[in-house]
Design a protein around this nucleic acid. Structure first.
Lengths: 253, 253
DNA sequence: ACCGCGAGGTTTACGTTATATACAGTTGAA
DNA sequence: TTCAACTGTATATAACGTAAACCTCGCGGT
């Protein structure tokens, strides 16, 4: 970690970095004329990093490991990618490349948004590192991520909600998927059972301090759920959105 | 980072670590008889780490920095804390120490749960590092966190929902608060405006690719919201929960 | 055709991280 | 008094991101 204690770069520098990073994401970098042919591209680098992350997790993605995939020194990558942060952005864009297709879900905002959430959830399941990758600072969305966002907002247009509300609902659904991904990431079968056993003993001994929790556990609150975990939260949220829509229509009409 | 490529510790070792960590969280460690008096305690170390994180962020919390706070070598801390991960757990427990008081919110599950969410949100605002700290693996809740959980579950007892559903609703509300914290953490005034400007140009140029997004922006979807950001999502979620309660009551009665 | 400069790639080095190991100093119980 | 247990330090290791200096190409302008 070369975190130099927040060197507080100059504003011009940061803007230049940002501009370069965005150009990279949109593929709008002008390639050079003079000099040897490049042996790599940002795209190929990102793809190698993605397969590495899929196989061994985001922690395994170091400049060294990625460079080794091309039999090249780590520093060589910096000719194509300004920093590791930008590489991660490219990885996110790479796996978000194909825009979700909501037409098969049928008409109406709710089937569309549900399908959208399911597709996003599938993406997070296929690439468990996505959560950590997008949690990193510098939330600079590239065209692929904007495509996902556009698809969700399109599904919401028929609701009659205001633009700000549509955006808020979008954030709500994204949040639900990401929360689920977080819960799944935390989950380790053995570890969880072991913690449950050890903490269970302590809970018994202090049952008076945690009455509601004790009762809920006794009633099986932590038993593995039978239904798809995405459904419960999503259904509640969309029910709530429906309530808002009904109220809005009632007022306007 | 001494991440030794997931050395896959033996199960016995992991269980012992877990047991030691839980004992630490619950303050159930037996103190030694012979030997010099300890000059520190896990508690004092955690408190120093908390003030450091409050002031300079979680990234500033290194074993060296914390140890320096006591004019002591970094390795000395390992006499009190098994690893940095456990230290972070202790930090979380420290700031979660006081159990939320929901009695002032009045009767009924909804005012109680709303108050609970507001208090948790206040905690995340007071300690912005909480999100990252709790996102780290090994979700081993100590008594303080269990106290928060118990308070939320207690508020939900009057709903008549099943234990599993109460748990799910709890997760939903926690998730909403954490999502908000995430959105706030990503947000940097200057940076965001700059990204909006640069991406806005690109969006104009590709408006046909993102029609719904373009329309939403034109209608001011990204204008700073006037209301408290927690409210929108929370209201939608709790509306949805109310729908579920109504449906459940309708069936049972 | 030449030549210089820009570009690709390597090497080396720095500062930082967590923590394993070996050791020295201190203290209470036997 | 002796000894084992305990505290704290010093040293060492592996890994990380990346800055800086350097060599080696090969195209563009002359």
């Amino acid at each position: 970690m070369a975190r130099a204690a927040k060197p507080r770069e100059s504003k011009e520098k940061r803007t230049r970095d940002l501009r370069a990073g965005i150009a990279l994401l949109w593929g709008e970098q002008d390639q050079p004329a003079r000099g040897p042919k490049p042996s790599l591209t940002p795209r190929r680098i990102a793809e190698a990093a993605v397969t590495l992350a899929d196989a061994e997790g985001l922690e395994a993605v170091s400049m060294n490991r990625v460079a080794a995939e091309f039999d090249v020194s780590a520093m060589a990558l910096y000719r194509y990618v300004p920093s590791k942060a930008e590489l991660v952005e490219l990885m996110v864009e790479a796996v978000s490349a194909e825009r979700p297709d909501l037409l098969a879900a049928g008409p109406g905002w709710r089937p569309g948004l549900t399908a959208w959430a399911r597709l996003l959830w599938a993406l997070y399941q296929a690439h468990p590192w996505l959560l950590a990758a997008t949690a990193m600072r510098r939330q600079v969305m590239g065209p692929a991520q904007l495509g996902w966002m556009d698809a969700a907002l399109a599904a919401l247009e028929s609701t009659g909600l205001a633009a700000g509300q549509r955006h808020q609902v979008f954030l709500l659904v994204v949040g639900q998927v990401r929360n689920l991904a977080q819960q799944l990431a935390d989950f380790d079968e053995d570890h969880n059972r072991e913690w449950g056993r050890l903490t269970g003993e302590l809970l018994d001994r202090h049952a008076d301090r945690f009455p509601a929790l004790t009762k809920a556990i006794a009633e099986g609150a932590f038993a593995p759920a039978a239904v798809d975990p995405l459904d419960f939260g999503l259904d509640r949220i969309l029910d709530g959105v429906q309530v808002l829509i009904d109220r809005t229509e009632g007022v306007s009409s």
